[in-house]
Each structure stands twice: as C-alpha cells, then as structure tokens.
Design a protein around this nucleic acid. Structure first.
Lengths: 144, 144
DNA sequence: TGGTAATAGTTGAAAATGTAACTAACAACC
DNA sequence: GGTTGTTAGTTACATTTTCAACTATTACCA
C-alpha cells in the first residue's frame, strides 16, 4: 500500500472538507441523538428556529441549504415531539410560520450549551489564527 | 426572520464544515454521478485504489475513515462495473487484495482531471494563505 | 374573469445508509 | 487437537435520504 500517484487526496478540498466535517460532527451527534433521538436535519431546523425565532420552511431551506423534503420531514418530527408549532400565514395560506414551543427552546438551550462546549474542544486542535482563517474560508466556500 | 440569539451558527464548526463540504462537493458530484453513475463512496474507493495501487478493504476503511459496510458495498459495485478486481491473499484468505482494472484506471484519470479542475475553481474563492491554513486546519480536525 | 404558471409544502417509492448479526478464516491457549 | 477468541468481510433489516409526482394556494395576464 505505497503511494504511487502524484495526486494527493489530502489536498483535494471536497475530500478534506468532508472528512473534517464527518469527524468533527460525530461527538455532537452522540449528544443530540443520545439525549433526544434527533437527526442532523432536526437539530439544524431547531437551531434555525431558535436563532431566527419565526421562519417558514422555505426560509429554513434557504438559510440552511437543505432540500425542502428534508425540512418538511424534520418539521414533522419536531412537531410530533411538541418542539415547534405551525401557524398558517393569514394573507398567504401557502406559507406556514414555524416557531419553537417553550419545550423546543429548552431543548435548544441544552443542545446549544453542548454545541459550544464541543466547539471549544475542536478549537483546541487549532491556533487562534487558524480558527479565524478557517471560519472565513469555510464561509467563502459555503457561497454556492 | 431577524436574528435573536447571540449564538451564531456560522461560528459553529461542525455546521460550517458540513455546509462548506456539502456545497463544494456538489459540482464534483454532478461529474462522477453524471458520467459514471457513481456514488460518493465509490469515487473515494476508486481514488484510494488508484493512488495506493493495492489495498484490502480494511486498508481503505482506515485511510478513508469509512465504515466497512460502506466500503464493502462500494467495492461490490465497482467490481460489477469491472473497475476493480479482487484477489484473495494466499497466506491469509480472510484478506482480499483489490486493484483497479485498466478500465477503472481510465475512469480515475478522467475523474481526477475533473477533480483538479474543480479544486482550482474552489481555490479561486480563497487566497493562497487561506488555502494553506485551511488545508492544515482540516487535516488537524480530521484526526479523531 | 378565466386560464395558465408559479410557489409552498407534502407524499410515496426507490435508493442509500446505519446497525447488528452473521460467515469464514485464522490465532492462541490449554 | 479442540475450544475459544479475533479479524476481514458480507448480509439482512430498519432508518434516512433522494427524486419525482402530487395538492393547495396565489400570481400573472390576456
């Protein structure tokens, strides 16, 4: 198993990004999955609603860059668990406004604390300068 | 949809990493999916075999940090398309040595060219310094 | 006003993934 | 040599995701 080719996977950004994303998500996944049986799509929707307070599914699709069926199903499951409420828009009944319940907000607060703690651990692998540049670069790469 | 909370998702590394990984993989995905109907797991296995020439499934699991069932199924599909060959190890018949066929190598050459081109496009979003730091940081975060 | 197009969101079937249990081969120990 | 444990890899089943088709509502425009 000796390297032959001059092409190095460890320089190919989509590969590297995926690897890093996968690994650095794992321990946070254990939290939201273990404590609340949630999926990645679900904590994402939950966090968006906590941060922006009031959104439609469409808004979440755009902000989180998730497909509408993913969002739709995540919303369903969050609703079943009474983490969020839906209210149809009065003027345009195609829209549904989503807001967290107090229970949903409580779950968010708990997960957020863990998220921040998790982030601290990750950042210990990097220098301050690396963190700054990394965030900037990741944001740049996140623009489609 | 105004931001309320002080917690910013755009600073949470697992989120950011996932976003960047997702978006920056998309156009490469169109290539390997469109041209060869391949999955992400499959191009990864293909690339590893092209680069390291001769590996067992276990080797690939470790290098690519993929679960053995993912690798097993990717290998199956690549074999069906005659992109790789299996040879049981003489001394320990639990191991199977995997190598690309010439057809597999041809597919790799094609995809690699596209990968490199794609990487160039991505890197245009970043400065030289950002790229260096980014790669270093991503490698650091990829250590479990 | 009526017909067509566009938009928000849902659903069902197919494909892919994750989990755990499984087989086959070898190792180690008595 | 036979029992037990370990390892490489596969398979079966449940869970998720994807893709395309669908409903319901509003917008556009002749």
């Amino acid at each position: 198993m000796t390297q032959k080719d001059d092409f190095d996977l460890r320089e190919f950004l989509p590969y590297l990004l995926n690897q890093a994303a996968e690994i650095s998500s794992q321990s946070f996944q254990r939290i939201y999955k273990g404590r609340y049986g949630m999926l990645r799509t679900e904590w994402r929707v939950l966090f968006h609603l906590a941060i922006y307070e009031r959104m439609t599914a469409k808004d979440i699709c755009e902000k989180a860059i998730m497909h509408k069926t993913k969002v739709s199903r995540a919303v369903q499951r969050l609703e079943q668990r009474r983490y969020l409420q839906r209210k149809p828009d009065e003027k345009d009944r195609r829209h549904e406004w989503l807001t967290l319940t107090s229970q949903g907000r409580a779950v968010y607060e708990d997960l957020r604390a863990h998220a921040q703690q998790h982030d601290q651990v990750l950042m210990q692998k990097l220098s301050i300068e690396e963190i700054t540049v990394l965030r900037r670069a990741l944001n740049a790469l996140s623009q489609p």
